[in-house]
Design a protein around this nucleic acid. Structure first.
Lengths: 231, 231
DNA sequence: ACCTGAACACCGTTCAAGT
DNA sequence: ACCTGAACACCGTTCAAGT
Protein backbone atom coordinates (compact mmCIF):
# COMPACT_ATOMS: atom_id res chain seq x y z
CA UNK A 1 0.00 0.00 0.00
CA UNK A 2 2.71 2.45 0.92
CA UNK A 3 4.25 1.82 -2.44
CA UNK A 4 1.34 3.51 -4.19
CA UNK A 5 2.69 6.94 -3.65
CA UNK A 6 6.27 6.05 -4.43
CA UNK A 7 5.98 5.57 -8.19
CA UNK A 8 4.80 7.98 -10.81
CA UNK A 9 3.58 5.24 -13.13
CA UNK A 10 2.24 1.98 -11.78
CA UNK A 11 2.98 -0.94 -13.99
CA UNK A 12 -0.46 -2.17 -14.99
CA UNK A 13 0.48 -5.74 -15.80
CA UNK A 14 1.90 -7.50 -12.81
CA UNK A 15 5.34 -8.96 -13.21
CA UNK A 16 5.23 -12.76 -13.17
CA UNK A 17 6.82 -14.55 -10.21
CA UNK A 18 8.21 -17.61 -11.92
CA UNK A 19 10.13 -17.72 -15.17
CA UNK A 20 8.29 -18.93 -18.23
CA UNK A 21 8.66 -22.57 -19.13
CA UNK A 22 7.10 -24.97 -21.62
CA UNK A 23 5.22 -26.67 -18.78
CA UNK A 24 3.78 -23.47 -17.37
CA UNK A 25 2.66 -22.44 -20.84
CA UNK A 26 0.98 -25.81 -21.38
CA UNK A 27 -0.81 -25.69 -18.02
CA UNK A 28 -2.08 -22.18 -18.72
CA UNK A 29 -3.28 -23.34 -22.15
CA UNK A 30 -5.22 -26.21 -20.62
CA UNK A 31 -6.88 -23.87 -18.15
CA UNK A 32 -7.82 -21.50 -20.96
CA UNK A 33 -9.13 -24.27 -23.22
CA UNK A 34 -11.18 -25.78 -20.42
CA UNK A 35 -12.64 -22.42 -19.49
CA UNK A 36 -13.30 -20.87 -22.89
CA UNK A 37 -13.13 -23.65 -25.46
CA UNK A 38 -11.02 -23.93 -28.56
CA UNK A 39 -11.53 -20.33 -29.62
CA UNK A 40 -10.46 -19.18 -26.16
CA UNK A 41 -6.82 -20.05 -26.73
CA UNK A 42 -4.98 -17.27 -28.52
CA UNK A 43 -1.44 -16.06 -28.14
CA UNK A 44 -2.75 -12.77 -26.84
CA UNK A 45 -5.00 -14.15 -24.10
CA UNK A 46 -2.39 -16.72 -23.21
CA UNK A 47 0.48 -14.25 -22.95
CA UNK A 48 -1.72 -11.88 -20.96
CA UNK A 49 -2.49 -14.68 -18.51
CA UNK A 50 1.22 -15.40 -18.20
CA UNK A 51 2.07 -11.70 -17.84
CA UNK A 52 4.32 -11.62 -20.86
CA UNK A 53 4.23 -10.75 -24.57
CA UNK A 54 3.07 -13.02 -27.39
CA UNK A 55 6.57 -13.30 -28.81
CA UNK A 56 8.01 -14.70 -25.57
CA UNK A 57 5.99 -17.89 -25.99
CA UNK A 58 7.87 -18.74 -29.17
CA UNK A 59 11.02 -19.21 -27.19
CA UNK A 60 9.42 -22.29 -25.58
CA UNK A 61 7.02 -23.67 -28.16
CA UNK A 62 7.24 -24.17 -31.92
CA UNK A 63 3.82 -22.87 -32.94
CA UNK A 64 0.16 -23.13 -32.06
CA UNK A 65 -0.27 -26.64 -33.42
CA UNK A 66 2.66 -27.80 -31.27
CA UNK A 67 1.06 -26.12 -28.26
CA UNK A 68 -2.35 -27.72 -28.76
CA UNK A 69 -0.86 -31.16 -29.31
CA UNK A 70 1.26 -30.80 -26.17
CA UNK A 71 -1.79 -29.75 -24.11
CA UNK A 72 -3.72 -32.71 -25.50
CA UNK A 73 -0.85 -35.04 -24.74
CA UNK A 74 -0.74 -33.89 -21.13
CA UNK A 75 -4.40 -34.83 -20.66
CA UNK A 76 -4.04 -38.15 -22.48
CA UNK A 77 -0.96 -39.07 -20.46
CA UNK A 78 -2.76 -38.39 -17.18
CA UNK A 79 -5.77 -40.35 -18.36
CA UNK A 80 -3.82 -43.44 -19.32
CA UNK A 81 -1.23 -43.44 -16.57
CA UNK A 82 -2.99 -45.83 -14.20
CA UNK A 83 -1.55 -49.27 -14.98
CA UNK A 84 -4.19 -51.98 -15.44
CA UNK A 85 -2.97 -54.93 -13.47
CA UNK A 86 -5.09 -58.01 -13.03
CA UNK A 87 -7.80 -57.04 -15.50
CA UNK A 88 -8.68 -59.24 -18.47
CA UNK A 89 -7.60 -57.78 -21.83
CA UNK A 90 -11.19 -57.00 -22.82
CA UNK A 91 -11.88 -55.29 -19.50
CA UNK A 92 -8.65 -53.32 -19.84
CA UNK A 93 -9.65 -52.12 -23.32
CA UNK A 94 -13.08 -51.11 -22.06
CA UNK A 95 -11.53 -49.22 -19.14
CA UNK A 96 -9.04 -47.47 -21.39
CA UNK A 97 -11.73 -46.51 -23.89
CA UNK A 98 -14.10 -45.25 -21.20
CA UNK A 99 -11.26 -43.28 -19.65
CA UNK A 100 -10.69 -41.52 -22.95
CA UNK A 101 -14.42 -40.95 -23.36
CA UNK A 102 -14.67 -39.31 -19.97
CA UNK A 103 -11.54 -37.23 -20.50
CA UNK A 104 -12.94 -35.88 -23.76
CA UNK A 105 -16.27 -35.26 -22.12
CA UNK A 106 -14.47 -33.15 -19.52
CA UNK A 107 -12.14 -31.49 -22.07
CA UNK A 108 -13.91 -31.46 -25.46
CA UNK A 109 -10.98 -29.67 -27.13
CA UNK A 110 -8.90 -32.82 -26.53
CA UNK A 111 -11.13 -34.62 -29.05
CA UNK A 112 -10.36 -32.28 -31.88
CA UNK A 113 -6.70 -31.90 -30.95
CA UNK A 114 -6.44 -35.68 -31.12
CA UNK A 115 -7.88 -35.89 -34.60
CA UNK A 116 -5.56 -33.13 -35.79
CA UNK A 117 -2.36 -34.81 -34.60
CA UNK A 118 -2.10 -38.01 -36.66
CA UNK A 119 0.72 -40.30 -35.64
CA UNK A 120 1.82 -37.91 -32.88
CA UNK A 121 2.47 -38.53 -29.21
CA UNK A 122 -1.09 -38.49 -27.84
CA UNK A 123 -2.35 -40.88 -30.50
CA UNK A 124 0.60 -43.18 -30.00
CA UNK A 125 -0.15 -43.44 -26.29
CA UNK A 126 -3.67 -44.65 -27.04
CA UNK A 127 -2.55 -47.01 -29.79
CA UNK A 128 0.05 -48.53 -27.50
CA UNK A 129 -2.45 -49.08 -24.70
CA UNK A 130 -4.89 -50.74 -27.05
CA UNK A 131 -2.23 -52.74 -28.90
CA UNK A 132 -0.79 -54.30 -25.77
CA UNK A 133 -4.22 -55.58 -24.80
CA UNK A 134 -4.95 -56.80 -28.33
CA UNK A 135 -1.79 -58.86 -28.06
CA UNK A 136 -2.81 -60.15 -24.66
CA UNK A 137 -6.10 -61.14 -26.20
CA UNK A 138 -4.21 -63.65 -28.32
CA UNK A 139 -4.94 -62.03 -31.67
CA UNK A 140 -2.44 -63.40 -34.20
CA UNK A 141 0.42 -61.10 -35.19
CA UNK A 142 -0.79 -60.28 -38.66
CA UNK A 143 -4.26 -59.32 -37.42
CA UNK A 144 -3.12 -57.16 -34.50
CA UNK A 145 -2.76 -53.96 -36.49
CA UNK A 146 -6.24 -54.27 -38.00
CA UNK A 147 -7.82 -54.92 -34.61
CA UNK A 148 -5.97 -52.13 -32.80
CA UNK A 149 -6.52 -49.56 -35.52
CA UNK A 150 -10.23 -50.39 -35.78
CA UNK A 151 -10.59 -49.68 -32.07
CA UNK A 152 -8.45 -46.55 -32.35
CA UNK A 153 -10.38 -45.20 -35.32
CA UNK A 154 -13.68 -45.80 -33.58
CA UNK A 155 -12.45 -43.96 -30.48
CA UNK A 156 -11.15 -41.08 -32.60
CA UNK A 157 -14.46 -40.90 -34.45
CA UNK A 158 -16.47 -40.63 -31.25
CA UNK A 159 -13.93 -38.17 -29.83
CA UNK A 160 -14.25 -35.91 -32.82
CA UNK A 161 -18.03 -36.02 -32.72
CA UNK A 162 -18.17 -35.22 -29.04
CA UNK A 163 -15.79 -32.33 -29.52
CA UNK A 164 -17.82 -31.05 -32.46
CA UNK A 165 -21.05 -31.34 -30.51
CA UNK A 166 -19.62 -29.39 -27.63
CA UNK A 167 -18.21 -26.71 -29.90
CA UNK A 168 -21.42 -26.44 -31.88
CA UNK A 169 -23.44 -26.16 -28.68
CA UNK A 170 -21.09 -23.52 -27.29
CA UNK A 171 -21.19 -21.51 -30.52
CA UNK A 172 -24.98 -21.52 -30.49
CA UNK A 173 -25.25 -20.96 -26.75
CA UNK A 174 -27.01 -24.24 -26.10
CA UNK A 175 -26.30 -26.77 -23.43
CA UNK A 176 -25.90 -30.40 -24.35
CA UNK A 177 -29.52 -31.42 -23.91
CA UNK A 178 -30.81 -28.43 -25.85
CA UNK A 179 -28.42 -29.30 -28.63
CA UNK A 180 -29.59 -32.92 -28.81
CA UNK A 181 -33.15 -31.69 -28.65
CA UNK A 182 -32.67 -29.44 -31.69
CA UNK A 183 -30.96 -32.19 -33.72
CA UNK A 184 -33.67 -34.64 -32.73
CA UNK A 185 -36.39 -32.22 -33.83
CA UNK A 186 -34.65 -31.58 -37.15
CA UNK A 187 -34.31 -35.32 -37.80
CA UNK A 188 -37.96 -36.01 -37.02
CA UNK A 189 -38.96 -33.46 -39.65
CA UNK A 190 -37.01 -35.10 -42.46
CA UNK A 191 -38.80 -36.48 -45.52
CA UNK A 192 -40.20 -39.91 -44.49
CA UNK A 193 -39.57 -41.41 -47.96
CA UNK A 194 -35.95 -40.35 -48.15
CA UNK A 195 -34.96 -40.66 -44.50
CA UNK A 196 -37.00 -43.44 -42.89
CA UNK A 197 -34.19 -44.75 -40.70
CA UNK A 198 -32.97 -41.40 -39.40
CA UNK A 199 -36.53 -40.37 -38.59
CA UNK A 200 -37.09 -43.58 -36.70
CA UNK A 201 -34.06 -43.01 -34.44
CA UNK A 202 -34.69 -39.30 -33.89
CA UNK A 203 -36.57 -40.04 -30.69
CA UNK A 204 -33.83 -42.28 -29.31
CA UNK A 205 -31.32 -39.48 -29.85
CA UNK A 206 -33.04 -37.23 -27.35
CA UNK A 207 -32.88 -39.69 -24.50
CA UNK A 208 -29.85 -41.76 -25.36
CA UNK A 209 -26.85 -42.29 -23.14
CA UNK A 210 -23.73 -41.27 -25.06
CA UNK A 211 -21.46 -43.19 -22.76
CA UNK A 212 -23.47 -46.42 -22.98
CA UNK A 213 -23.65 -46.13 -26.78
CA UNK A 214 -19.92 -45.58 -26.92
CA UNK A 215 -19.29 -48.71 -24.92
CA UNK A 216 -21.75 -50.70 -27.05
CA UNK A 217 -19.62 -49.83 -30.09
CA UNK A 218 -16.45 -50.95 -28.33
CA UNK A 219 -18.14 -54.22 -27.43
CA UNK A 220 -19.30 -54.69 -31.02
CA UNK A 221 -15.73 -54.37 -32.29
CA UNK A 222 -14.39 -56.57 -29.49
CA UNK A 223 -16.83 -59.31 -30.35
CA UNK A 224 -15.92 -58.89 -34.02
CA UNK A 225 -12.27 -59.38 -33.07
CA UNK A 226 -13.21 -62.56 -31.24
CA UNK A 227 -15.54 -63.80 -33.95
CA UNK A 228 -14.39 -66.66 -36.21
CA UNK A 229 -15.96 -64.80 -39.16
CA UNK A 230 -13.33 -62.10 -38.88
CA UNK A 231 -10.34 -64.40 -39.00
CA UNK B 1 -6.99 -6.94 -79.63
CA UNK B 2 -8.40 -3.92 -81.39
CA UNK B 3 -10.18 -3.04 -78.15
CA UNK B 4 -6.89 -2.27 -76.45
CA UNK B 5 -6.67 1.20 -77.80
CA UNK B 6 -10.31 2.03 -77.31
CA UNK B 7 -10.43 2.43 -73.56
CA UNK B 8 -8.47 4.69 -71.29
CA UNK B 9 -8.72 2.41 -68.30
CA UNK B 10 -9.11 -1.34 -68.68
CA UNK B 11 -11.11 -2.90 -65.90
CA UNK B 12 -8.60 -5.23 -64.31
CA UNK B 13 -11.09 -7.69 -62.85
CA UNK B 14 -13.31 -9.19 -65.51
CA UNK B 15 -17.00 -8.78 -64.97
CA UNK B 16 -18.65 -12.12 -64.30
CA UNK B 17 -20.98 -13.53 -66.93
CA UNK B 18 -23.55 -15.25 -64.73
CA UNK B 19 -25.16 -13.86 -61.62
CA UNK B 20 -23.93 -15.18 -58.29
CA UNK B 21 -25.85 -18.05 -56.75
CA UNK B 22 -25.43 -20.38 -53.82
CA UNK B 23 -24.65 -23.23 -56.20
CA UNK B 24 -22.00 -21.32 -58.12
CA UNK B 25 -20.37 -20.30 -54.85
CA UNK B 26 -20.35 -23.89 -53.63
CA UNK B 27 -18.86 -25.21 -56.87
CA UNK B 28 -16.13 -22.58 -56.78
CA UNK B 29 -15.41 -23.49 -53.14
CA UNK B 30 -15.05 -27.17 -54.04
CA UNK B 31 -12.63 -26.30 -56.82
CA UNK B 32 -10.60 -24.13 -54.45
CA UNK B 33 -10.56 -26.73 -51.66
CA UNK B 34 -9.55 -29.49 -54.06
CA UNK B 35 -6.77 -27.38 -55.52
CA UNK B 36 -5.34 -25.70 -52.43
CA UNK B 37 -6.62 -27.58 -49.42
CA UNK B 38 -8.50 -26.28 -46.41
CA UNK B 39 -6.38 -23.19 -46.01
CA UNK B 40 -6.96 -22.34 -49.66
CA UNK B 41 -10.58 -21.36 -49.09
CA UNK B 42 -10.88 -17.77 -47.91
CA UNK B 43 -13.52 -15.19 -48.67
CA UNK B 44 -10.94 -13.14 -50.48
CA UNK B 45 -9.67 -15.85 -52.84
CA UNK B 46 -13.20 -17.11 -53.35
CA UNK B 47 -14.67 -13.71 -54.18
CA UNK B 48 -11.73 -12.99 -56.47
CA UNK B 49 -12.40 -16.23 -58.34
CA UNK B 50 -16.04 -15.26 -58.66
CA UNK B 51 -15.17 -11.72 -59.72
CA UNK B 52 -17.00 -10.09 -56.86
CA UNK B 53 -16.39 -8.68 -53.39
CA UNK B 54 -16.23 -10.66 -50.15
CA UNK B 55 -19.43 -9.08 -48.87
CA UNK B 56 -21.49 -10.26 -51.84
CA UNK B 57 -21.09 -13.87 -50.77
CA UNK B 58 -22.99 -13.20 -47.57
CA UNK B 59 -26.13 -12.55 -49.57
CA UNK B 60 -26.14 -16.25 -50.50
CA UNK B 61 -24.49 -18.06 -47.62
CA UNK B 62 -24.73 -17.71 -43.86
CA UNK B 63 -21.05 -17.92 -42.94
CA UNK B 64 -17.95 -19.96 -43.60
CA UNK B 65 -19.09 -22.97 -41.61
CA UNK B 66 -22.32 -23.08 -43.62
CA UNK B 67 -20.27 -22.87 -46.83
CA UNK B 68 -17.92 -25.71 -45.89
CA UNK B 69 -20.77 -27.95 -44.79
CA UNK B 70 -22.64 -27.27 -48.04
CA UNK B 71 -19.54 -28.08 -50.12
CA UNK B 72 -19.08 -31.28 -48.12
CA UNK B 73 -22.72 -32.18 -48.56
CA UNK B 74 -22.48 -31.79 -52.34
CA UNK B 75 -19.64 -34.33 -52.46
CA UNK B 76 -21.37 -36.75 -50.08
CA UNK B 77 -24.63 -36.55 -52.04
CA UNK B 78 -22.84 -37.37 -55.30
CA UNK B 79 -20.96 -40.21 -53.64
CA UNK B 80 -24.05 -41.87 -52.23
CA UNK B 81 -26.50 -41.23 -55.05
CA UNK B 82 -26.09 -44.56 -56.87
CA UNK B 83 -28.88 -46.79 -55.51
CA UNK B 84 -27.70 -50.23 -54.43
CA UNK B 85 -30.20 -52.65 -55.92
CA UNK B 86 -29.69 -56.38 -55.68
CA UNK B 87 -26.74 -56.27 -53.30
CA UNK B 88 -26.80 -58.03 -49.96
CA UNK B 89 -26.97 -55.67 -46.97
CA UNK B 90 -23.37 -56.40 -45.97
CA UNK B 91 -22.15 -55.82 -49.53
CA UNK B 92 -24.14 -52.59 -49.69
CA UNK B 93 -22.55 -51.35 -46.45
CA UNK B 94 -19.09 -52.22 -47.72
CA UNK B 95 -19.77 -50.41 -51.00
CA UNK B 96 -21.12 -47.35 -49.22
CA UNK B 97 -18.17 -47.27 -46.83
CA UNK B 98 -15.61 -47.70 -49.59
CA UNK B 99 -17.35 -45.00 -51.61
CA UNK B 100 -16.90 -42.59 -48.71
CA UNK B 101 -13.31 -43.67 -48.25
CA UNK B 102 -12.50 -42.98 -51.88
CA UNK B 103 -14.35 -39.67 -51.86
CA UNK B 104 -12.35 -38.50 -48.85
CA UNK B 105 -9.17 -39.74 -50.42
CA UNK B 106 -9.94 -37.58 -53.45
CA UNK B 107 -11.15 -34.61 -51.34
CA UNK B 108 -9.43 -34.75 -47.95
CA UNK B 109 -11.17 -31.57 -46.76
CA UNK B 110 -14.46 -33.51 -46.86
CA UNK B 111 -13.16 -35.61 -43.97
CA UNK B 112 -12.68 -32.69 -41.63
CA UNK B 113 -15.82 -30.90 -42.79
CA UNK B 114 -17.74 -34.06 -41.94
CA UNK B 115 -16.38 -34.24 -38.42
CA UNK B 116 -17.18 -30.57 -37.86
CA UNK B 117 -20.84 -30.84 -38.85
CA UNK B 118 -22.41 -33.13 -36.26
CA UNK B 119 -26.00 -34.09 -36.98
CA UNK B 120 -26.03 -32.00 -40.16
CA UNK B 121 -27.07 -32.94 -43.69
CA UNK B 122 -23.91 -34.73 -44.88
CA UNK B 123 -23.74 -36.91 -41.79
CA UNK B 124 -27.42 -37.70 -41.96
CA UNK B 125 -27.05 -38.96 -45.55
CA UNK B 126 -24.41 -41.43 -44.43
CA UNK B 127 -26.33 -42.49 -41.34
CA UNK B 128 -29.44 -43.10 -43.43
CA UNK B 129 -27.59 -45.21 -45.99
CA UNK B 130 -26.04 -47.32 -43.24
CA UNK B 131 -29.22 -47.54 -41.18
CA UNK B 132 -31.35 -48.85 -44.04
CA UNK B 133 -28.88 -51.68 -44.60
CA UNK B 134 -28.61 -52.42 -40.87
CA UNK B 135 -32.38 -52.88 -40.89
CA UNK B 136 -32.19 -55.09 -43.97
CA UNK B 137 -29.61 -57.12 -42.12
CA UNK B 138 -32.32 -58.08 -39.66
CA UNK B 139 -30.80 -56.37 -36.63
CA UNK B 140 -33.54 -56.00 -34.00
CA UNK B 141 -35.03 -52.54 -33.58
CA UNK B 142 -33.43 -51.69 -30.28
CA UNK B 143 -29.94 -52.65 -31.52
CA UNK B 144 -30.13 -50.79 -34.83
CA UNK B 145 -28.95 -47.46 -33.47
CA UNK B 146 -25.91 -48.98 -31.77
CA UNK B 147 -24.95 -50.88 -34.93
CA UNK B 148 -25.44 -47.95 -37.28
CA UNK B 149 -23.67 -45.44 -35.08
CA UNK B 150 -20.72 -47.77 -34.50
CA UNK B 151 -20.24 -48.00 -38.25
CA UNK B 152 -20.74 -44.25 -38.66
CA UNK B 153 -18.28 -43.38 -35.90
CA UNK B 154 -15.68 -45.68 -37.36
CA UNK B 155 -16.09 -44.11 -40.80
CA UNK B 156 -15.88 -40.62 -39.29
CA UNK B 157 -12.76 -41.60 -37.38
CA UNK B 158 -10.97 -42.84 -40.47
CA UNK B 159 -12.21 -39.82 -42.42
CA UNK B 160 -10.78 -37.44 -39.91
CA UNK B 161 -7.45 -39.23 -39.80
CA UNK B 162 -7.13 -39.28 -43.56
CA UNK B 163 -7.96 -35.60 -43.72
CA UNK B 164 -5.44 -34.85 -40.99
CA UNK B 165 -2.77 -36.91 -42.70
CA UNK B 166 -3.32 -35.08 -45.97
CA UNK B 167 -3.25 -31.69 -44.27
CA UNK B 168 -0.18 -32.52 -42.25
CA UNK B 169 1.60 -33.77 -45.36
CA UNK B 170 0.62 -30.66 -47.30
CA UNK B 171 1.76 -28.36 -44.51
CA UNK B 172 5.14 -30.05 -44.38
CA UNK B 173 5.48 -30.39 -48.15
CA UNK B 174 5.53 -34.15 -48.09
CA UNK B 175 3.66 -36.55 -50.28
CA UNK B 176 1.70 -39.37 -48.71
CA UNK B 177 4.48 -41.97 -48.80
CA UNK B 178 7.06 -39.56 -47.40
CA UNK B 179 4.65 -38.74 -44.60
CA UNK B 180 4.08 -42.40 -43.72
CA UNK B 181 7.80 -42.93 -43.95
CA UNK B 182 8.50 -40.20 -41.41
CA UNK B 183 5.85 -41.47 -38.97
CA UNK B 184 7.12 -45.00 -39.36
CA UNK B 185 10.68 -43.87 -38.62
CA UNK B 186 9.56 -41.93 -35.57
CA UNK B 187 7.64 -44.93 -34.24
CA UNK B 188 10.54 -47.31 -34.72
CA UNK B 189 12.70 -45.03 -32.58
CA UNK B 190 10.34 -45.10 -29.59
CA UNK B 191 11.46 -46.54 -26.26
CA UNK B 192 11.15 -50.35 -26.57
CA UNK B 193 10.06 -50.73 -22.94
CA UNK B 194 7.32 -48.17 -23.08
CA UNK B 195 6.13 -48.67 -26.65
CA UNK B 196 6.63 -52.30 -27.64
CA UNK B 197 3.44 -52.60 -29.67
CA UNK B 198 3.78 -49.36 -31.61
CA UNK B 199 7.40 -50.20 -32.44
CA UNK B 200 6.39 -53.62 -33.69
CA UNK B 201 3.83 -52.19 -36.13
CA UNK B 202 6.04 -49.32 -37.33
CA UNK B 203 7.22 -51.41 -40.26
CA UNK B 204 3.72 -52.39 -41.33
CA UNK B 205 2.75 -48.74 -41.41
CA UNK B 206 5.19 -47.98 -44.21
CA UNK B 207 3.82 -50.61 -46.57
CA UNK B 208 0.22 -50.89 -45.45
CA UNK B 209 -2.80 -50.43 -47.69
CA UNK B 210 -5.04 -47.80 -46.11
CA UNK B 211 -8.04 -48.88 -48.12
CA UNK B 212 -7.70 -52.56 -47.23
CA UNK B 213 -7.21 -51.69 -43.54
CA UNK B 214 -10.30 -49.53 -43.65
CA UNK B 215 -12.34 -52.36 -45.09
CA UNK B 216 -10.95 -54.79 -42.52
CA UNK B 217 -12.32 -52.52 -39.79
CA UNK B 218 -15.74 -52.41 -41.44
CA UNK B 219 -15.72 -56.21 -41.65
CA UNK B 220 -14.75 -56.46 -38.00
CA UNK B 221 -17.72 -54.35 -36.98
CA UNK B 222 -20.03 -56.21 -39.35
CA UNK B 223 -19.02 -59.53 -37.90
CA UNK B 224 -19.50 -58.06 -34.43
CA UNK B 225 -23.02 -57.07 -35.44
CA UNK B 226 -23.67 -60.62 -36.61
CA UNK B 227 -22.02 -62.23 -33.61
CA UNK B 228 -24.22 -63.82 -30.93
CA UNK B 229 -21.89 -62.34 -28.30
CA UNK B 230 -23.04 -58.84 -29.17
CA UNK B 231 -26.74 -59.53 -28.83
C1' DA C 1 19.66 -16.97 -22.84
C1' DC C 2 15.45 -15.13 -22.46
C1' DC C 3 11.99 -11.61 -22.95
C1' DT C 4 9.45 -7.36 -24.95
C1' DG C 5 5.98 -5.48 -27.82
C1' DA C 6 5.34 -3.23 -32.10
C1' DA C 7 4.66 -4.59 -36.76
C1' DC C 8 3.36 -7.74 -40.62
C1' DA C 9 0.39 -10.29 -43.30
C1' DC C 10 -3.31 -12.20 -42.99
C1' DC C 11 -8.38 -13.73 -41.43
C1' DG C 12 -14.14 -13.69 -41.23
C1' DT C 13 -17.66 -10.48 -41.06
C1' DT C 14 -20.25 -6.04 -41.30
C1' DC C 15 -22.36 -2.25 -43.42
C1' DA C 16 -23.09 2.24 -45.64
C1' DA C 17 -23.42 3.14 -50.18
C1' DG C 18 -24.47 2.07 -54.73
C1' DT C 19 -27.40 -0.14 -58.91
C1' DA D 1 -32.97 -7.51 -54.55
C1' DC D 2 -28.44 -7.86 -55.11
C1' DC D 3 -23.74 -6.23 -55.14
C1' DT D 4 -19.49 -3.29 -53.84
C1' DG D 5 -15.41 -2.67 -51.20
C1' DA D 6 -13.63 -0.19 -47.36
C1' DA D 7 -13.44 -0.85 -42.51
C1' DC D 8 -13.51 -3.49 -38.12
C1' DA D 9 -11.89 -6.54 -34.91
C1' DC D 10 -9.45 -9.91 -34.72
C1' DC D 11 -5.67 -13.81 -35.75
C1' DG D 12 -0.51 -16.38 -35.68
C1' DT D 13 4.05 -15.20 -36.28
C1' DT D 14 8.35 -12.42 -36.74
C1' DC D 15 12.03 -9.65 -35.24
C1' DA D 16 14.78 -5.62 -33.83
C1' DA D 17 15.72 -4.16 -29.52
C1' DG D 18 16.39 -4.75 -24.81
C1' DT D 19 18.23 -7.23 -20.23
Amino acid sequence: MSRWGMVKKTRSSQRREEALSRDRIIEASIALLDHSGESGLTFRTLSERLATGPGALYWHIVNKSDLTTAACDAIVARTLEAPQVGATPKAAIRTLALGMFDAIDAHPWVGSALTRAPGQAPMVRILEGIGQQVRALGVPGDAQWAAASALLNYILGVSGQNAANAQFARAHDLDRSNFLESVSTAWSQLDPDEYPFTRSVAGQLRAHDDRADFLAGIDLILSGIGSPLAQ
